[in-house]
C-alpha cells in the first residue's frame, strides 16, 4: 500500500460519492416532502445515460448530447410524475413500492426494446479524455476529475437554493411539515412537480456522467439505487446535508473497502483466507455501516424532523 494508490482510491471514492449524492439529493427530497417511496428514481438515471449516449452518437456533439439528455430526462421525469406518481402520494407505502417497481420493469424493458439488452458504449470527447498529472507520481483521469467538480458544484448550488431562496424555504418547510406548507396557501402540487423534476434532472445528470465509466445497460439504475438508499438511511430522510455526508461516506467506504480490505486482511490472515473473505466483506461493508449508524442514530446522521 503506497500513498499514491491511497490518493488515487480516495479520489475514486470521492467520485463515487458525488455520483451517489446527485442521485440521493433528489430522492431524499421526494421521500421527505412527498413521503413517496420512488423506486423508479434509478430508471431516470438510466434514461439520462441512454439519452445522452444516443444523442452523442447521432449528433456527434457531446455538449449538445448532454443538454438534450438532461432535458429529455427532465421531460420523462415530469411525465412520469403527472401520469403515475401523482396518484400515489395519498396511497400507502406498499402501493408506492409496488407501483414504482412496476415502473422499473416497464422502463427497463422499454430501454431493451429501443436499444437492446446488451450494454452500449458511451465515449468521452477528446477534450475530456486523458489524464492529469496531479503530483509527480499521481496521474488521474481528467473525466473523473470533471465529475468530482460537477458534483461538488451541484452540491454548492443546492446548498444555495435550499438555504437562500424562497423555493428552498418551501422545500425545508415541506420536509419537516407538509400540512404547514399547504396551510400557507402554496400550490403544493406545483411544488411537488418542481421538486420531482429537479430530482429527475439530477438523476439524469448522474446517469449521463456515469455513462462513459460504467456500462450503459437495462437495469443499471437499480444497482446504484440500492446504494443510494443506504446513503439516505445513513444521512437521514429529507436532509440534503445528510445526503451529501452519507454519499461521501458510502462512496469512500465502498471504494476503499474494495481496494484495501483484501491486502489488509492478508497481513493478518493467510492469503487464501484473505482472498476468500476480502471481496465478501468489502461488498458487505456499506450495509454493515448502515446497521451501525442505525443502531446509534435510528433517524440517520442529520434527521430533518425533530
Amino acid at each position: 500500500m503506497n500513498l499514491v494508490l491511497i490518493a488515487e482510491q480516495t479520489l475514486n471514492g470521492l467520485q463515487l460519492g458525488v455520483m451517489l449524492f446527485l442521485l440521493a439529493a433528489g430522492l431524499t427530497l421526494v421521500f421527505g416532502i412527498m413521503n413517496l417511496v420512488n423506486l423508479a428514481h434509478g430508471a431516470l438515471y438510466m434514461v439520462g445515460a441512454y439519452l445522452t449516449t444516443y444523442f452523442h452518437q447521432t449528433t456527434g456533439s457531446f455538449a449538445l448530447a448532454v443538454l438534450l439528455g438532461l432535458a429529455g430526462t427532465l421531460l420523462v421525469g415530469i411525465v412520469t410524475e403527472l401520469v403515475a406518481l401523482r396518484t400515489l402520494y395519498e396511497r400507502d407505502h406498499l402501493d408506492q413500492v409496488l407501483a414504482t417497481f412496476g415502473l422499473i420493469l416497464f422502463f427497463n424493458e422499454l430501454v431493451a426494446i429501443l436499444w437492446g439488452r446488451a450494454a452500449i458504449y458511451s465515449t468521452i470527447p477528446d477534450y475530456l479524455s486523458g489524464h492529469v498529472q496531479i503530483t509527480a507520481q499521481l496521474r488521474y483521469p481528467l473525466y473523473r476529475l470533471v465529475i468530482i467538480g460537477i458534483g461538488l458544484a451541484v452540491a454548492v448550488l443546492l446548498w444555495w437554493v435550499v438555504s437562500r431562496t424562497r423555493l428552498g424555504m418551501l422545500i425545508r418547510a415541506g420536509a419537516s411539515n407538509r400540512a404547514m406548507v399547504s396551510a400557507l396557501g402554496i400550490n403544493i402540487r406545483l411544488l411537488y412537480t418542481i421538486v420531482f423534476g429537479f430530482g429527475a434532472a439530477l438523476a439524469g445528470l448522474a446517469g449521463l456522467l456515469s455513462g462513459p465509466i460504467y456500462a450503459v445497460q437495462p437495469g443499471m439504475g437499480e444497482l446504484i439505487l440500492i446504494q443510494v438508499f443506504v446513503v439516505i438511511v445513513i444521512g437521514g430522510i429529507g436532509s440534503i446535508r445528510g445526503a451529501f455526508a452519507g454519499a461521501l461516506i458510502v462512496g469512500m467506504v465502498d471504494t476503499l473497502g474494495r481496494a484495501f480490505l483484501k491486502p489488509t486482511l492478508a497481513t493478518v490472515l493467510s492469503p487464501t483466507a484473505a482472498d476468500a473473505a476480502g471481496p465478501a466483506m468489502a461488498s458487505m461493508l456499506i450495509y454493515l455501516l448502515m446497521a451501525v449508524v442505525l443502531a446509534f442514530r435510528p433517524e440517520g446522521l442529520f434527521p430533518s424532523r425533530s
Binding site: 421521500f31 440500492i226 476468500a276 458487505m284
Partner: peptide, 21 residues
Amino acid sequence: IYFIMITLAFTQMLYYLGISL
C-alpha cells in the same frame, strides 16, 4: 420508508455476499 429501505438494503448485502462466495 426506513423499514422498506433497510430490509431491501440488507437483502442486497446478502445477494452480494452470495456473489462473492
